[in-house]
Design a protein around this nucleic acid. Structure first.
Length: 299
DNA sequence: GTAGGGATGGTCT
DNA sequence: GACCATCCCTACA
């Protein structure tokens, strides 16, 4: 039994006795206040004015626009690898990270997806919105995960891990806010190596749900200049994490990460061993169209 | 470094 | 009331 699955099983029906983590209720980093960084959520209109000033002055020539997001889910999940996610905080601070790990959730027949069977609820609405829409949802009570909708009804890509490129000190403060006092300092590679860590480090709040990554002034995606897209051989396809209870769907190799990258949250040696990593040599659109019965034999 | 144990509260049935 | 796309800490090798 995997650790994650075990944890989920144990959590069911358990009494909660432990006091809230230090700082969880009122996170107050020593030098950067998340409240200040995220001012826009509290007072959208005044913050908008302030932000638009920065936005206009920014060099956005590398920003990825809505065409980029108009791809089938699996193809988009791979296309995200190597791209740079930028978060501009309310005080103008820019945080940057290179995406190194994603997961594709196809909706429809994909039982592991929140939007499985076309299930559209208040929470999953963003998954059905136009490609490039941000879907932020709370998980395990205290964490958030960030997805981006793709082509396909209810399909979205979960952003799992990132390599910090700019603003590491701020990210560290944001991440440290809810950790135990006196805990060792986080290494750079530990700042964003998990979906909720990524949200914490980039100060992505719940209210970013349903925003458009192609046009939002506070968060966007960039292509690094002079950088080629990841080669198929550089991308590892592995089963998604934390969905073991979904049977066959948990085995679909729809988690993608950059081979050998130190910021990947969970390395799957078995998947990496698979010579050629068959899934990587497919036209992803073929995979996308065959969510029910996968035609490709995995080694 | 890795494995094991435990906590959180929103969402859905 | 059960589940959950996670994370952190501790103990041990």
């Amino acid at each position: 039994m995997s650790k994650v699955f075990r944890c989920n099983v144990m959590m069911a029906g358990r009494k909660r006795k432990m006091p809230a983590l230090k700082g969880a209720a009122t996170p107050q980093p020593a030098e950067v206040s998340p409240a200040k960084l995220n001012k826009k959520c509290e007072n959208p209109q005044s913050a908008e004015t302030e932000l638009s000033h920065h936005f206009i002055n920014n060099d956005l020539q590398h920003r990825l626009e809505e065409d980029f997001f108009k791809q089938p889910c699996i193809r988009l999940a791979k296309a995200f690898l190597g791209k740079v996610l930028v978060r501009r905080c309310a005080d103008g601070t820019e945080l940057r990270g290179r995406i190194v790990e994603t997961e594709a959730y196809l909706g429809g027949e994909d039982k592991a997806s929140h939007s499985a069977g076309g299930k559209r609820t208040e929470r999953t609405t963003a998954m059905f919105m136009k490609p490039g829409t941000i879907y932020v949802y709370p998980i395990y009570g205290i964490y958030l995960c960030m997805n981006v909708s793709s082509e396909g009804e209810g399909a979205a890509v979960l952003l799992r891990s990132m390599e910090p490129l700019q603003g590491q000190p701020v990210m560290r403060q944001l991440r440290t806010a809810r950790r135990k006092e006196g805990a060792r300092q986080l290494k750079d590679k530990e700042l964003c190596n998990g979906p909720s860590k990524l949200c914490q480090a980039l100060n992505i709040p719940r209210c970013f749900d349903r925003r458009d990554l192609a046009s939002d002034p506070d968060v966007w995606l960039e292509r690094e200049p002079d950088t080629n897209p990841a080669e198929p051989d550089d991308i590892v396809s592995a089963p998604r994490i934390g969905i073991e209870s979904h049977g066959e769907w948990a085995k679909k190799p729809w988690r993608f990460y950059l081979r050998g990258h130190h910021c990947v949250s969970v390395v799957n040696k078995e998947a990496e061993r698979q010579s050629g990593n068959v899934m990587n040599n497919l036209d992803p659109s073929d995979v996308q169209s065959d969510t029910g019965q996968h035609k490709v034999k995995r080694a």
